[in-house]
Design a protein around this nucleic acid. Structure first.
Length: 586
RNA sequence: GCCCUCGUAGCUCAGUAGGAUAGAGCGAUCGCCUCCUAAGCGGUAGGUCACAGGUUCAAAUCCUGUCGAGGGCACCA
């Protein structure tokens, strides 16, 4: 609809240019907006205001010439020039009616487009360390990332969803060692648990599995384990040195094979749990990308080699540094530590190099906002590698804060006391969780009201929009019971009966949907969908209250049923994009 | 100290590639069920768009500064 108005304007401009009435400028893509005030018509353009300065003359004069040059269209009832030079378009009364057969014929595809032209986009999200279950903070990234990916797919991009598994590195060693220490406790050893170890119950569970299946096969005496290990922090020592010492001891005592077994047990259990958790949340991936595989296939060395060859690495204090400060970062960064271990950053350089080597036109990383300081060094590294850093977009998602009974819930990862995503899902349900997580712009802190998310009332936006869907279904059921089902053939319609204001409003809202999907996709703004769905539901509920659908007049009844069928279709399409179910009854 | 994000109605938030009289929900208040689910609908009240300058036909939106909130500044991940 908007597109058609734009085309009329372009034609008018070309006519003026061809007849020499405007010179000195090509037509930019005309800006056409839906009006806020119905007194300004349905669409308005500021084209004359923008272009008057470029081509000379007064905006209102240019507007008048544009209007005079507009081709005739059955769509437009009339136009007017308003204010400083806006052109307002008033649509013909029936202009939106063809929308209904369009929506019913397109079905699930209504709102989709080919805008992305099949360009390959990778969306990497969540990517939480597999050192424990996902918590509610990860949930927001999961919901947000999943919808961004689905939106991009809806507008025609070839989307690749990926989870980066940090299955290498120190944190995983600490997890494996924590698991083993808990196992030793279960085996009867007296173990002072390290303050920096993973203390969650899930570690106990995995240790119990190890003990049940392998008895004492992994057992070593506590005195042997702790001999000559630097003191822990509560004992006046350094907790980092303490845990690193224990990790080294675990590797030494267990040997490669047994250590690897414990490590993998922890990794695989937690990864399975995360995968299962996300699947129940409606979030799935095309690929789970292993950090370890980067080292194994030599990508890390290759990335460092490329940087070294380009002269962007140097040695200092026994470590290898990347000259990040030459590429917009605050300071240089270590890529290989003085103990010979490469840093997480080195893996991440290799990972992003690998992403671009895989030929994606665009790469989107979705991170927690606490990682924002990390953006310049990654972009800097890509630039240093000779890649285009503009291909990478990093979207930062702010924290979610849970509220119960109006009180903010305190969470602390350190003590292992945090609300998991699974607990949240079980408490408020998947639909409410998905909906609430994406209600706000991602750069806005999210206040997640658990009581509201659970409440079965119209105060709860999830129930509100789902209820609209269930109501349509209910009406259609009753129509069927009375033998009054809508004509199945879309060819037989009596849509000219849809003259009520509420019906016209509903049609306008339905017409906006494809524009909205496009905007939400290009702006990576899932929250626009929740706002739209609430508006559509409101229009429907208002209509429902004001008019009867199952009326005597068969033609009118059929037209109204077709209209609410279209409403149901758009609700479904929207729900599908945000991962919320479309219930037929409440 | 430096950097990033945010500041809009009592509360939670939309609106920010500059556009016409700044919107919604909740809360407050007044109404609407012999009728397809009242899990719904409508009316009213409520604003110095944090503050101060600047840019221009036009600023909540862009620029500068100030104040306030959160976050980041590791040989952790």
């Amino acid at each position: 609809m908007k597109q058609q108005v734009k085309e009329l304007l372009s034609a008018a401009w070309q006519h003026l240019a061809a007849t020499g009435q405007v010179t000195g400028a090509d037509l930019p893509d005309p800006q056409v907006d839906r009006t806020r005030d119905p007194a300004h018509g349905d669409f308005a353009t500021n084209l004359a205001l923008v272009m008057a300065k470029v081509v000379g003359g007064k905006p209102r004069d240019l507007a008048a010439r544009l209007v005079a040059a507009l081709p005739a269209s059955a769509l437009i009832a009339r136009t007017e020039i308003a204010g400083p030079g806006f052109i307002n378009f008033f649509l013909a009364p029936g202009a939106h009616l063809s929308l209904i057969p369009t929506i019913l014929a397109a079905g699930p595809d209504y709102g989709c487009s080919k805008l992305g032209a099949g360009k390959r986009v990778q969306v990497e999200f969540v990517s939480a360390n597999p050192t424990g279950p996902l918590h509610v903070g990860h949930g927001r990234g999961a919901a947000y990332g999943a919808v961004v990916a689905d939106l991009l797919a809806a507008v025609g991009f070839a989307v690749h969803r990926e989870y980066y598994v940090n299955d290498a590195g120190r944190q995983m060693d600490i997890l494996g060692t924590s698991l083993w220490l808990r196992y030793l406790e279960l085996a009867g050893e007296d173990i002072p648990f390290p303050s920096n170890g993973y203390k969650g119950d899930y570690v106990w569970d995995m240790a119990a599995t190890l003990h049940r299946e392998h008895g004492d096969a992994y057992r070593h005496g506590a005195d042997e384990v702790f001999a000559a290990i630097p003191a822990d922090e509560p004992a006046g020592g350094d907790k980092e040195l303490h845990i690193d010492g224990l990790v080294a001891r675990a590797k030494a005592l267990l040997g490669d094979n047994r250590y690897r077994y414990v490590f993998e047990l922890g990794l695989n259990n937690i990864l399975d749990d995360i995968r299962d958790d996300l699947a129940h949340f409606g979030v799935t991936y095309d690929e789970w990308f292993s950090e370890r595989s980067l080292t194994e296939k030599g990508a890390v060395n290759r990335a460092l080699e490329r940087l070294r060859a380009a002269g962007h690495l140097y040695e200092k204090d026994g470590a290898l540094w990347f000259r990040a400060s030459a590429f917009g970062d605050e300071k240089d960064r270590v890529v290989v530590r003085d103990n010979g271990q490469s840093t997480y950053f080195a893996s991440d350089i290799a990972y992003h190099m690998d992403k671009l080597e895989r030929g994606f036109d665009r790469v989107i990383d979705i991170w927690g906002a606490d990682h924002h300081g990390y953006v310049p060094r990654i972009k800097g590294a890509l630039q240093a590698l000779g890649d285009d850093p503009a291909k990478l977009d990093v979207l930062l998602v702010q924290f979610a804060i849970l509220y119960r009974g109006g009180e903010r819930m305190q969470m602390s990862t350190r003590s292992g006391e945090f609300v998991t995503l699974r607990e949240l899902r079980q408490e408020v349900g998947r639909d409410a969780a998905r909906f609430f997580y994406i209600m706000r712009r991602c750069e806005q802190h999210l206040d997640f009201d658990l009581d509201l998310a659970k409440s079965q009332s119209s105060d709860n936006p999830v129930y509100y929009v789902q209820y609209a869907h269930a109501r349509v279904c209910s009406v259609l059921r009753q129509a069927a019971d009375k033998g009054l089902a809508a004509e199945p053939s879309p060819g037989v319609m009596h849509l000219e009966h849809l003259t009520e204001t509420h019906e016209q409003d509903l049609l306008k809202t339905l017409a906006r949907y494809p524009e909205l999907v496009e905007e939400a996709a290009l702006g990576e703004e899932p929250h626009q969908l929740t706002h739209y769905l609430r508006e559509l539901a409101n229009d429907f509920h208002t209509y429902y209250n004001a008019h009867q659908f199952l009326v005597e007049d068969a033609a009118l009844r059929d037209a109204r049923l077709k209209l609410i069928l279209a409403v149901r279709q758009v609700l479904r399409n929207g729900f599908n994009l945000i991962g919320v179910s479309a219930p037929e009854t409440m």
